[in-house]
Every structure is written in structure tokens, then in C-alpha cells.
């Protein structure tokens, strides 16, 4: 089958960007979306033109490197999938496919589809951890954790930090990302000592990085390749309120 691909090209963070059209790209239905971009790039490179720049690494939906807005949807068509796991069978022969970078103030474009998501790392550095010096851990089975709590914490922990939630949000808010980490660690007994400091510090870092506020659109949950639930945002807000009343002056 053949598809027409419109790709956002931008040579640098401050450069003017524009769409470039690649028409009649030959693809197979079983090819992944990124393999379709590879086909375009091999041709570009062989002809001496610069390839379309995009992040990808594991190509099995777990590293969180890849991501673009395809036909208006973060990670493209289909639910609960990263872009690398979208296959060309999701499109029809002759389709025109528009590919843009994740757009958010806190995710500046580096080049073409590649964006800078280091703001996520800064949020984790602000408090997204449990302090546990190597070597000081108690015996692993010393503190049982009920399966239900463990499973729910796990659901939050599956976040891959891809940034689709931010790209999908009209406010470019990072609340789903932050709430996933706050909930993963805050539900576990090991995470209790730092629970309230964590939520305050992470939310402050999120605000400082230029992400917008959450106004409950729910687009983030719909775009999330791991199906992280909005309920974690509610959980974050509970912790935040509790922190406001009980911590620091």
C-alpha cells in the first residue's frame, strides 16, 4: 500500500518549522509506524538529504523514547499504544498522515519530531524516589504488602514517562505523570516517610518547569499508552491537601 506522509521539519529549537510532504511512500501493513519513517530516512540519506529526526529506542513500547502527534493524536491511532507499536495496518491505502512533535511549552522542540522532555527528569529529581541507601535495606519479606495495594501501586508504576499525557492535554499539564509517581510511591509502606514532602516538592517542580494546570479534561488518560488512570490525580490532590494542612508553616 501507499501513503502520503506530512512530517514536521524544524532544523533547531529557534528555527521556523514547516511540514514536508512525502507522497506515495511504499509500505506494508505489518510494518510499524517507525519503520515507515525508517523507509523515508533510508531514501533521504542515500540521496544526501538529512533524515527526519525522531527519538526511538526499544521499539517495543516500554522505554518511552518515541512519540509524536499523528493525525492529531498523541502516539497515533489506537488506544494504549506507543507510536512504535502502531502498525501501518491502522491506515488505509492512499491515506495522508500528518506527523508533528509533542507540543508543550515545557517540551521544546530540538529538531523535527525530537523534543526535550528533561523537565520530567527534574520533577523526579525533586522528590520522585524513596531514600534507601544501598546496603541499608531490611529483609524483603519483613513487611508484607497486601496484594491489592501492591497491584494498585503497580498500576501507577507502569508509567513510561513518554510525555503523551502532556502532549494530549489542552493545558499541557503533567498531572498524570506526576500523580502516577506520587501514587506508586505513596501507596507503599516504604514510601510513607517522604509521602507529603514528595507530593509538595514534585508539584512545585512541575509548576516551575512550565507545565499547565489540570482542569480535568481527561485527554491524558485517553492518550496514555499504559492506561494510567485519572484516579491517581485525585489521589495526588488528596495528598497535596493533607500536606498543605500538616507540613511546614
Amino acid at each position: 500500500m501507499k501513503v502520503n506522509v506530512r512530517v514536521w521539519r524544524q532544523s533547531g529549537p529557534d528555527a521556523q518549522g514547516a511540514f514536508e510532504d512525502f507522497s506515495g511512500v511504499d509500505v506494508l501493513p505489518d510494518m510499524s509506524f517507525l519503520e515507515m519513517l525508517d523507509v523515508i530516512n533510508v531514501k533521504l540519506e542515500a540521496s544526501g538529504s538529512e533524515p527526519v529526526c525522531f527519538d526511538s529506542d526499544c521499539r517495543e513500547g516500554i522505554c518511552g523514547s518515541c512519540g509524536a502527534v499523528v493525525n492529531g493524536e498523541a502516539h497515533g491511532p489506537g488506544t494504549r499504544s506507543t507510536l512504535c507499536q502502531v502498525h501501518m495496518r491502522s491506515f488505509k491505502d492512499g491515506d495522508t498522515i500528518t506527523v508533528e512533535p509533542f507540543r508543550a511549552k515545557a517540551f521544546p522542540v530540538i529538531r523535527d519530531l525530537m523534543v526535550d522532555r528533561s523537565a520530567f527528569d527534574k520533577i523526579i529529581q525533586a522528590g520522585g524516589f524513596i531514600t534507601a541507601r544501598t546496603g541499608s535495606a531490611p529483609e524483603a519479606n519483613a513487611a508484607p504488602i497486601g496484594k491489592q495495594v501492591a497491584d494498585e501501586a503497580f498500576d501507577a508504576a507502569t508509567c513510561i514517562g513518554c510525555g503523551a499525557c502532556v502532549a494530549a492535554c489542552p493545558n499541557a499539564s503533567a498531572m498524570l505523570f506526576v500523580s502516577a509517581k506520587v501514587s506508586h510511591l505513596g501507596m507503599l509502606p516504604q514510601g510513607q516517610p517522604q509521602r507529603l514532602a514528595r507530593v509538595e516538592d514534585m508539584v512545585a517542580a512541575m509548576d516551575a518547569a512550565g507545565f499547565g494546570a489540570c482542569s480535568n479534561h481527561g485527554e491524558c488518560e485517553a492518550a496514555c499508552p499504559k492506561g494510567i488512570s485519572l484516579k491517581f490525580i485525585a489521589r495526588l490532590n488528596q495528598d497535596l491537601v493533607q500536606a498543605a494542612f500538616t507540613r511546614r508553616s
Binding site: 524516589f129 524513596i130 534507601a132 544501598t134 546496603g135 541499608s136 535495606a137 531490611p138 529483609e139 524483603a140 519479606n141 508484607p144 504488602i145 497486601g146 496484594k147 501492591a150 501501586a153 503497580f154 508504576a157 506508586h184 510511591l185 507503599l188 516504604q190 514510601g191
Partner: peptide, 22 residues
């Protein structure tokens, strides 16, 4: 054996039995 202890202390959500043990 120390690795498992260390990872649990960090909050790695290993699979658990209904009784709460790993």
C-alpha cells in the same frame, strides 16, 4: 539476596501473594 531487599526498599513493586509476601 541483598538485591531483592534493596529493590523492595526503593519501592519496586514485585509481584506478591495474597498474604502480602513476595
Amino acid at each position: 539476596v541483598d538485591i531483592i531487599d534493596q529493590c523492595v526498599a526503593q519501592g519496586v513493586p514485585f509481584a506478591r501473594e495474597y498474604g502480602g509476601l513476595l
